[in-house]
Design a protein around this nucleic acid. Structure first.
Lengths: 413, 413
DNA sequence: AATACTTTTTAAAATATTTAAAAAAGTTTC
DNA sequence: GAAACTTTTTTAAATATTTTAAAAAGTATT
């Protein structure tokens, strides 16, 4: 059966796309719950839901538990109705996966090296790789809602431009990729997508003011403000890594000194391990090769978890410094929750104590009191989930933006 | 003629209140412009506008210039239809005024001393004073839309509580005052109201991401994010004054050391003037009494404006430090504009150069490039205007909140 | 197991809003 | 200064949405 999802050109039918989005975020929902979310009345939701069922996009999924009265019928998106290609990049390595609308991978995650710095072919290579993954999966393109890509750099998601990497002469990256692949392509900054993942499926769910830290080779920040991903005027908000917080004279990648990043990134941790070992510190890490950063940091995190004193000390020290930055965030944003996510979150609870200590010392008690620090449970997959969510987030705009390739053909009858 | 404004209980008629709000913000508007703002169709706006005219709340105000076709009729609120009591407080002095909906004072601004610290009678005294001002004005209460109060401290505007000052045993301040005065009362933090004033009537008008600095005895911050006043999870967002930015050991009023405030408030400027003069610095300020802070800081600002080297140096120094804080704001929020408002803004352009210099040194160029620094033109009245705007901001919620005193009588036929 | 109370679902009536078309008022061009 | 084009205003018809009420399906209590 072919899909005939988006004949819904008229404003009227926009609600259907909204319903699909809500079901994507929540898996199964009752009519009453959908009403609340969409802020529409019951008969309206009911009507469109029934239409969606007739069209084969949504199914009933049995009754939910009663809360004192008649049990509500619940609904969900038909499994494997639609897929999303999600891509997560860092400066060296990129990963591609195809997911269904339940955040399950339907292909193995394809990982490959793709250096972004001074690489004019990066966009081309990426597009080719994505094409390859789609082809190999055997999934027809009209069953793919789009491609979402998380990437480092200054990304203007709205315009579809990355000012730091992946530039394409004369075109936006999204335009270029979209034409090449034949699917809608959406991009955003990596940290922001991690925050989006947390907002829709993680620890920030149903919360309205949350700071999501992406502790990795830098310290990224995605901000949920008033229940929405905050992007700032040009889409550059959240440059936590480069706030001038220290008076050291360590030169940062951005050209300045004293950036938060210069004292708190995982790269700094690796360097300090190397220095310490050279200086004769005892540690289970003494036999670990530090050349391959990914493996090195994993080893260090494991060591700390298992009680290696040297490693634990380093995380304490780093955590405390991150905490000083978090104190600033709390003063400015008064968030409900601060979530530690990204690669570094695999170190888990180790961060919590030193960060909390920094807050106790540097925060006004009334503020610190009202904020809790949590560790992400999405872990390594956060960015891929966020990239998928980005596609669905833009789902309802699909028919409006004429920039979308073949809008009349794609996903239509 | 009596007013019979708010019979509009039904959702239907909420639009009328919206129209009044838009006209309050913009003075005069055409139907087409109202459609855009309210995101409603022309016939709907037209219909309600005509109803409002019949009810005597709104008048035609002639034709606007043509933009190539028929000239649009414009509309405005009937002058002196409604008044607002606005109050602006700092820790020592409070000011009360009554304004019409064109931000003009219809009574002289009443200024009086009201220390807030450890003063259990503050709320009582304030309420009495407000009553007095209203009585003296001769304006009947049913012509007053409400009372808006800007105050220092940790204010939860939604709950109507100030956790720092003006506490009333067993009640919210707003409840207490509202019952005592017989009018709806709304409160918010002083810096946030200044930002609101800038958003609706000042340099932040029609902008979506703006930081408004309230340079005074501390350095307050009101944030406009996504076109709205941002309050944070508990209403405490914007504690810029107390971000831990310096490694000095100056004890701050909040109990910590190193707060931005300890190096940048106008109080620090006064202290440094005193120290400098004692140390023998030459300056026109040598004959100025420094005991009365208000007069002192005014004299210092004037001296700097007129070229006194010592005063100018101090503002440079202070401005540069504020700039370091602003650099953090720019990294995190990527705002379109940063506005210098509040008492300190009277020093005007003197701040701009040193702040800009700090940004050049501490900001990633791409971010600094996209933000401009502006001086408020609202000046000393910003907070009073903001307090008035707060009342009108809550105007459409009037009939909903049953907490409003005598909701059936007030402003009704 | 019958009754009272909830909540969900369905259906009908009442409202509200948008779309489309026509009329009115101006501007610009030739 | 008429014709062509714009924009605003008015009107009528078509849609869409909400409200209200009633029926159906469960749960809890006695």
């Amino acid at each position: 059966m072919e899909l005939y999802l988006l004949i819904m050109g008229k404003k009227n039918q926009q609600l259907k796309k909204k319903i699909i989005k809500y079901l994507y975020y929540s898996d199964t929902l009752s009519v009453a719950e959908l009403c609340l979310k969409a802020d529409k009345s019951l008969p309206v939701i009911s009507k469109f839901l029934n239409e969606l069922i007739e069209e084969g996009l949504i199914t009933e999924t049995g009754y939910a538990a009663s809360s004192g009265g008649r049990r509500p019928l619940t609904y969900a998106i038909v499994p494997n109705l639609l897929y999303v290609v999600s891509v997560s990049m860092d400066q060296y390595v990129s990963r591609i996966a195809i997911m269904n609308l339940k955040n399950s991978f339907v292909t193995p995650v394809e990982e490959f090296e793709l250096p972004l710095t001074k690489n004019p072919d990066a966009s081309f290579v990426l597009a080719e790789k994505i094409e390859e993954v789609i082809t190999n999966s055997g999934i027809p393109k009209n069953k793919i809602a789009g491609v979402g890509i998380g990437m480092p750099g200054f990304v203007d998601a709205k315009k579809g431009i990355n000012y730091t990497f992946l530039s394409v002469p004369g075109k936006n990256v999204t335009e270029y990729m979209s034409e090449k692949i034949g699917l809608p392509v959406f991009i955003d900054n990596d940290s922001r997508l991690i925050a989006l993942a947390e907002l829709r499926f993680g620890a920030a769910r149903n919360k309205t003011n949350v700071m999501v830290l992406n502790v990795g080779w830098g310290v990224g920040l995605g901000m949920i403000l008033n229940g929405e991903l905050f992007k700032g005027h040009n889409g550059f908000a959240g440059e936590f890594s480069h706030i001038p917080l220290f008076t050291n004279s360590i030169l940062c990648s951005c050209g300045k000194t004293g950036c938060l990043e210069t004292e708190t990134s995982l790269m700094v941790v690796i360097k300090k391990v190397q220095e310490g070992l050279r200086g004769g510190r005892m540690s289970v890490l003494k036999d670990v090769a530090m050349e391959h950063f990914e493996q090195a940091i994993e080893a260090i995190m494991n060591a700390a978890k298992e009680g290696d004193q040297f490693a634990a000390e380093l995380f304490s020290e780093t955590g405390y410094k991150i905490g000083r930055g978090v104190a600033i965030l709390i003063h400015l944003f008064n968030p409900e929750t601060v979530i530690l996510s990204g690669r570094g979150s695999l170190a888990g609870k180790i961060w919590q104590a030193p960060i909390q200590q920094a807050l106790n010392e540097h925060c006004i008690p009334r503020l610190a009191m009202n904020t809790n620090i949590e560790i992400s449970t999405l872990g390594y997959h956060a960015e891929l989930i966020g990239a998928a969510a980005l596609v669905m987030e833009n789902f309802e705009r699909r028919t409006e933006t004429s920039g979308t390739p073949e809008p009349d053909d794609h996903l239509l009858k």
